[in-house]
Amino acid sequence: MSADNSIIFYDIASGPPLRTFAANPWKTRFALNFKGVPYKTEWYNMPDITALRERLGVPANRTLPDGTPYHTLPVYQDNTKGILLGDSFEIALRLDEAYPGPPSLFRPSTIGLTAAFNAHVDGLFTKFASGLCVNMPLNPDALEASIAIFVKRAGLKSADEMGLSSEEHEKTLVSFEAALGELAKAYRHTGGTTDYFWRSGGTHKAQSQRPPTGREGAQPFLDGDSPAYSDFIVGAWLKMFEESTKPEDWQRIKSWQGGLWGKVVEALGPWTEIK
Rank of each mutant, 00 (worst) to 15 (best):
22 A>E: 10
24 N>V: 09
24 N>Q: 12
24 N>F: 13
29 R>T: 00
30 F>P: 05
35 K>E: 04
36 G>K: 00
36 G>V: 04
38 P>I: 01
38 P>S: 09
39 Y>I: 00
42 E>C: 08
44 Y>C: 09
46 M>N: 04
46 M>S: 09
48 D>S: 14
52 L>Y: 09
54 E>G: 10
56 L>F: 10
57 G>H: 15
58 V>H: 14
62 R>L: 11
63 T>M: 07
65 P>R: 02
65 P>Y: 06
70 Y>L: 05
73 L>K: 01
73 L>S: 00
77 Q>P: 13
78 D>C: 02
79 N>C: 08
81 K>A: 08
82 G>Q: 05
83 I>T: 06
85 L>F: 06
86 G>Y: 02
91 I>Q: 05
93 L>S: 05
93 L>R: 14
97 E>S: 04
99 Y>P: 00
99 Y>I: 00
99 Y>S: 03
99 Y>N: 02
100 P>G: 04
103 P>A: 06
104 S>G: 09
106 F>E: 06
112 G>C: 08
113 L>P: 07
116 A>C: 12
116 A>M: 10
117 F>P: 08
120 H>T: 15
120 H>D: 15
123 G>L: 15
124 L>E: 15
125 F>M: 15
128 F>P: 14
128 F>N: 15
129 A>P: 10
131 G>I: 11
133 C>W: 14
134 V>Y: 11
134 V>A: 14
136 M>C: 13
138 L>I: 14
139 N>A: 15
140 P>C: 13
144 E>G: 03
148 A>F: 08
150 F>I: 07
155 G>R: 04
155 G>D: 06
157 K>C: 07
